[in-house]
């Protein structure tokens, strides 16, 4: 008992020290950002000073955000001994690593698997979610709040908590080591997420449109398919995209429910990519593979930037 108390005491102290140091380090940055926003219009000495500090903070944020990916691209284009000398600017443009990865049949098939699994998962989730979120957003019934909370709770499940039960289910259905095992198990996080976000979107649509349709004698199904669906397209694209990214990145289920190399998805393939021997990690090809699977995602995210930010915040923050 005394041991436990001293353990807890030291750890609380540890946490307190951690928070204190963090705040002390970050405080000047906060001060700079807030001060520069306050004095942005002023051409006085202090206004200029805070402006410069502000730009340094901005530069740091951008640099830290993009450097690791930049460095991965850099490394993926180097081979042999060159790879093992740290350098900050491109030294060579050798596509050998890309050739090595793309000529591995297992890696190519894992890309195909990932695209297939993520696409089917998203389509299925959206199909189930549109009608469900209409009911949750537009029809008042007892227990709606509780139901919404339950759905939210499911999306926050620790995946490991359902792993052995899902493993049994997957084996019982005879879909172990097939893409269907992944599609089924990914529903556990894509479906609650899409329902949640679409419900938020639908709640904000004006009631008048729906009422007009009902007065004209439209059935609930017609209201969904003819009135709401056209208005929902932007929301569907956003949610679909976010669910796609989630399915594309999933690791635990993909690792557990596939066994042969050609059935793996991209994250598992990259995590288990190995060289000729156990000791030797093939960093060049790993970096090339990482760049290959990341570039389409980054392109998608940058193209749909505004929509994604809107979708993320709809899923996270409720005004």
């Amino acid at each position: 008992m005394i041991d436990l108390l001293t353990f807890l005491f030291w750890n609380l102290l540890y946490f307190a020290a951690f928070v204190g140091i963090t705040l002390a380090v970050v405080f000047p940055f906060y001060y700079a950002v807030l001060s520069s926003a306050d004095r942005s219009g002023e051409r006085t000495a202090s206004g200029v000073f805070w402006n410069i500090v502000f730009w340094i903070v901005v530069a740091l944020i951008v640099l830290i955000a993009i450097f690791p990916f930049y460095y991965a691209v850099l490394s993926s284009l180097e081979t042999g001994t060159q790879l093992f000398i740290p350098n900050y600017l491109p030294q060579s443009l050798n596509p050998a690593n890309y050739e090595a990865v793309l000529t591995r049949p297992s890696f190519v098939s894992s890309i195909v698997n990932s695209v297939f699994v993520a696409t089917v998962t998203v389509v299925a989730a959206l199909f189930l979610a549109v009608t469900a979120s209409y009911a949750l957003a537009r029809v008042r019934f007892r227990g709606r709040g509780l139901l919404l909370l339950t759905i939210l709770a499911v999306s926050m499940f620790p995946q490991i908590a359902v792993l052995s039960g899902l493993f049994e289910l997957v084996n019982w259905l005879g879909i172990y080591n097939t893409p269907w095992a992944l599609i089924l198990s990914y529903t556990i996080f894509t479906l609650p997420f899409t329902v949640w976000v679409l419900t938020t979107f639908m709640r904000d649509l004006p009631v008048e449109i729906e009422e007009a349709a009902i007065v004209d004698g439209a059935s609930p199904w017609v209201v969904i398919s003819k009135v709401f669906l056209p208005l929902l397209w932007p929301a569907l694209v956003t949610t679909g995209l976010l669910a796609f990214i989630g399915a594309w990145n999933e690791f635990l289920f993909a690792l557990t429910f596939t066994i042969t190399e050609t059935r793996r998805t991209v994250p598992v393939a990259i995590a288990l990519l190995s060289g000729a021997s156990q000791q030797e990690i093939p960093w060049g090809p790993i970096m090339a593979a990482s760049v290959i699977v990341t570039v389409p995602l980054i392109a998608l995210v940058l193209i749909f930037q505004r929509k994604i930010v809107a979708g993320l915040t709809a899923g996270g923050v409720k005004g």
Binding site: I61, V62, A65, P68, F69, I245, M287, L297, L302
Partner: peptide
């Protein structure tokens, strides 16, 4: 804003590998 979206868009496994390197 575009720049800070990049770390978010990179799959966790890929970022683990990149940082591992």
């Amino acid at each position: 804003r575009a720049a800070i979206l990049i770390p978010w868009a990179i799959p966790t496994i890929v970022s683990a590998r990149m940082w591992g390197w």
